[in-house]
Design a protein around this nucleic acid. Structure first.
Length: 569
DNA sequence: GCCGTTTTCGGCCCGACTGTTTTCAGTCG
């Protein structure tokens, strides 16, 4: 899959052109193309094969030639030439907050600064003084920015972002001037990682809110504070932006502040075509306010149904909305049970009964206890003797429980040859079998793919757990041919998992969409190793929603009897 | 460099805040 390589190159090109001072629309064209390719659920090489590259929005004659050149020769000449035209390392300067293309260009032209260490040295030697347009404050901001880059401004996981967002909401909600409050930005779109937190407040006293926001205990540093908008950094180095608007602009501001940026641009273009102006204060016709209180009324004026925040990525949803063909997304309440959990029998922290009660409290009607299998010793995988005892325990608890069912399950190891580590006679006893890879991630792509495909063909395997192995902050997805696995899954009625564990979210949103397009049904599981982790299901639902999935695309929206029928091979 | 129920040429989203400015460019989202 060359998609991400092209994305990176196009973004690089855009940045180099910015520094060199190219046509801003040409620059934007590269950025837009990169964004659109990033959002593709299909391999770009498929588009080439079918000669329909220019069907990808933002890709015309020139860019399609560049893409073909890269896929064909491994290089893009124009990009190689551009790279040579500026020093390596200059692009790093753009990573520094407060340093944009113009400043980078200035620093290079006046002082021959080529990279971040060079800038640091120049600042320490007082060389920046006297450069036109740079004074003490600017230098100070650059130094702060450099520090931040050094510490690595990583993105948070969605789970962390949700927590930070909630803390700020509840802290701000205590102020009487706050009439209404909401999170926006990529957190509201439920992206799997989030850079900064956006908070929207309705109030008649914006100045007061600004002071209160900047004065919160969690605030380490105020980055900017104006009349209606302020940015701070928390003690944990998270940037939080707060914006205050009046009541009638709440919907407009929420829409604007939620993004994504490209989604907003497209909506504004749609507004222009209708002779309207759309900004964060509302929709205006000849300067007269006609909508803005709620997002719903704004979409209505723009002639389309409400677009769920999770869809707002400019990945085709606006076009579908205009034809009223948006998918109806799955919701948390549709989930009837959790299909991937662990108990004390292997490496979980709670007993089976405790897990069952916690699941019941969440309103579920079933839960699968899928402890690790024999060969995963490190997680105390169960021997066949253990399994008999575990089965007895489950049967006993099931007799006690009314309107709820424990499913006897396992998360079985797929070995390096694609076989499972329990014999068929053992496997067939389970109500549900999840198969997973926990070793040999670094095998060649072909072998990894073969293992997964073979696991799908096993007639006792119902679900493939965390199919790409991505573990946030630990390792990248392993190198598999996901399309081949999807094909195999489709053919054998095997389900792929959306693992909702905070650091996994695997399959991710784009791959979910790919699975749906291929006709593969997904199974949501939290991989909970303790009762309180069952609540991570909401993250999995978010991934599913971002992957355009409806209730009908997810296995465990089914009542128990239908679920058991559905998974039969 | 892309794109077209106004257009195949001439447009291309819109505004807040900062730091440096006597009116605005740069950065950010």
């Amino acid at each position: 899959m060359k998609n991400l390589e092209i994305v990176r190159i196009f973004r690089d090109i855009a940045q180099i052109l910015q520094i060199k001072g190219g046509n801003v629309f040409r620059i934007r064209a590269y950025e837009r193309a990169a964004q659109n390719i990033e959002g593709l659920s299909q391999d770009i090489e498929d588009f080439i094969k079918e000669d329909r590259l220019t069907e990808v929005p933002g890709i015309g004659k020139d860019l399609s030639e560049r893409i073909k050149e890269l896929v064909g020769t491994g290089k893009i000449k124009m990009y190689e030439d551009l790279k040579k035209s500026i020093p390596e390392g200059l692009l790093d300067l753009l990573e520094i907050p407060s340093v944009g293309p113009r400043t980078a260009k200035l620093l290079y032209e006046k002082l021959k600064i080529k990279n971040i260490p060079g800038l640091e040295k120049a600042i320490k030697k007082n060389k920046l003084r006297g450069i036109f347009g740079i004074k003490e404050k600017t230098i100070e901001n650059m130094l702060k920015g450099i520090e931040l880059v050094k510490r690595g401004r990583e993105r948070m996981t969605l789970a962390q972002a949700i927590q930070v967002g909630e803390e700020f909401l509840s802290a701000l909600n205590k102020f009487p001037e706050v009439k209404r409050i909401a999170v926006a930005g990529s957190l509201r779109r439920q992206k799997e990682t989030v850079r900064d937190i956006d908070i929207l407040v309705v109030s008649d006293e914006p100045k007061k809110i600004m002071a209160e926001f900047s004065g919160l205990k969690a605030v380490k540093e105020v980055l900017a504070e104006g009349e209606t908008k302020a940015s701070i950094r928390t003690r944990d180095d998270v940037q939080v932006d707060c914006r205050v608007v009046e009541q009638r602009s709440f919907g407009a501001a929420l829409l604007y502040f939620t993004g994504s940026k490209n989604f907003n641009i497209k909506l504004r273009q749609a507004a222009i075509r209708k002779g309207l102006k759309l900004n964060e204060y509302g929709i205006f016709r000849k300067g007269k306010f006609i909508a803005g209180r709620t997002e719903e009324e704004m979409f209505k004026v723009l002639g389309m149904p409400y677009v769920e925040p999770e869809l707002r990525e400019d990945n085709g949803e606006i076009e579908l909305a205009q034809e009223s063909k948006l998918p109806e997304l799955i919701e948390p309440k549709d989930i009837k049970g959790d299909l991937h959990t662990h108990s004390k029998w292997s490496d979980g922290g709670n007993t089976i009964e405790e897990m069952a009660r916690a699941a019941g409290d969440l309103g579920y009607s079933y839960i699968a206890i899928t402890d690790h299998s024999r060969s995963l010793r490190i997680a105390r995988g169960l021997t066949t003797a253990d399994l008999r005892k575990k089965k007895n325990e489950i049967d006993k608890i099931n007799k006690k429980l009314k309107g709820f069912r424990l499913l006897y399950g396992t998360e079985a190891e797929i070995d390096s040859g694609g076989r499972l580590d329990y014999k068929d006679g053992v496997l067939k006893e389970f109500d549900i079998v999840i198969a997973a890879i926990h070793s040999g991630f670094k095998q060649p792509k072909e072998q990894l793919t073969r293992r997964m495909v073979k696991a799908c063909t096993n007639k006792y395997v119902h679900i493939i757990a965390h199919p790409t192995g991505r573990l946030w902050g630990v390792r990248e997805a392993y190198d598999i041919d996901l399309d081949a696995v999807l094909e195999a899954a489709k053919e054998t009625n095997t389900h792929l998992e959306i693992n909702a564990f905070t650091q996994r979210l695997d399959l991710n949103d784009l791959n979910c969409r790919r699975a749906k397009e291929k006709g593969v049904k997904l199974a949501l599981g939290t991989d909970a190793h303790a009762a309180e982790q069952l609540s991570a299901m909401k993250l999995g639902v978010s991934v599913a929603r971002r992957g355009w999935l409806g209730k009908e695309d997810v296995l465990n929206t089914l009542p128990l009897e239908e679920l058991l029928k559905e998974i039969k091979k």
